[in-house]
């Protein structure tokens, strides 16, 4: 009775929270649908806003076929491939801070990653195992799509884009393979790039351009490095954009059998 007219501390704190969340600054940053807004809540409208008003989520449509998103149908393989690409980008940027693509510094930097850099070995491991897993998930994604017949009209061209993405994934992995500049890297890439020389007509020229000579040298290291960290990611991002866009334009996730 005596408290009438006075605001308690709790009310003041919650009042301050509401004030901040209703402020112009706050509402300009967090668009409708964000869980951080004062007007957030579970409603069909807000569920749609969550997707529409978020730069990451709006790769997705607002609604999808219920049976198309069953885990047993997609196995999440395409999404996981994309996630692994992002993870490899993040860990790769970390590694770039500690790596010089010259001989013999490249090898010393690998040793330093294992001994001197905080979490260096862990991040390098994640980068390497993540790359292997990505080759697997991309290949399995292709297999999944084939068995579901999801390449049939109107999705023919997106299948072709997917094959290009598989090829680019292999090339990314292959160019990264040389960078540790140890015996494993050198000779695995030697074996791999020797095959390129057998390509008829222009095989030798392509091999010469990629390797930067008739055999692998320290120049090859720089070439593969640029291909690995800049050129191929640039290309693959373009094809990934087309791939995702076509998924939407061709009618979303393909229907179940």
């Amino acid at each position: 009775m005596a408290d009438r007219g006075r605001t308690s501390l709790k009310e003041r704190v919650s009042g301050l929270g509401d004030h901040v969340r209703n402020s112009q600054v706050w509402t300009s940053i967090f668009r409708p649908g964000s869980a951080l807004r004062a007007d957030s809540g579970d409603s069909p409208r807000n569920r749609a806003y969550v997707v529409m008003n978020n730069v990451l989520y709006h790769l997705h449509p607002v609604k999808v076929k219920r049976r198309g998103i069953k885990v047993s149908y997609t196995l999440c393989l395409g999404g996981l491939s994309f996630f692994l690409f992002i993870l490899l980008t993040v860990t790769g940027i970390f590694l770039m801070f500690y790596y010089r693509p010259t001989s013999p510094q490249a090898y010393f930097d690998m040793q330093a990653l294992a001994t001197d850099v905080a979490f260096g070995q862990l991040v390098r491991n994640m980068h390497r195992w993540g790359a292997h897993v990505m080759v697997l998930t991309v290949f399995l994604h292709m297999t999944r799509v084939f068995y579901h017949g999801a390449y049939k009209p109107p999705r023919e061209f997106n299948w072709v884009v997917g094959i290009i993405l598989l090829l680019l994934t292999l090339l990314l992995s292959f160019t990264g393979y040389l960078l540790p500049w140890d015996q494993l890297a050198l000779w695995a890439v030697t074996v791999g790039s020797n095959m390129g020389g057998y390509v008829p007509v222009f095989g030798r020229q392509v091999s010469f351009a990629l390797v930067g000579g008739v055999q692998i040298t320290a120049d090859t290291l720089l070439r593969f490095y640029v291909l690995h960290v800049l050129f191929l990611p640039f290309i693959i991002v373009i094809f990934m954009a087309v791939h995702f866009w076509r998924v939407r334009k061709d009618g979303g996730i393909s229907g179940p059998l």
Binding site: L87, S103, P104, Y107, M110, Q111, A114, Q121, L122, V123, R124, N125, M126, H127, R128, W129, G130, H132, V133, V135, L170, S173, F174, Y177, P180, W181, D182, Q183, L184, A185, L186, W187, A188, T190, V191, G192, M195, Q215, I216
Partner: peptide
């Protein structure tokens, strides 16, 4: 991946040596 990376280290052999080809020398697994 974090668990795998914590348990298993990525390989790093000796410094690249053009004059000594390991036997066998294999391409990347794929």
């Amino acid at each position: 991946l974090t668990l795998l990376s914590a348990l298993v280290d990525a390989p790093l052999l000796e410094f690249a040596n053009f004059n000594q080809q390991p036997n066998p020398s294999k391409a990347p697994w794929y």
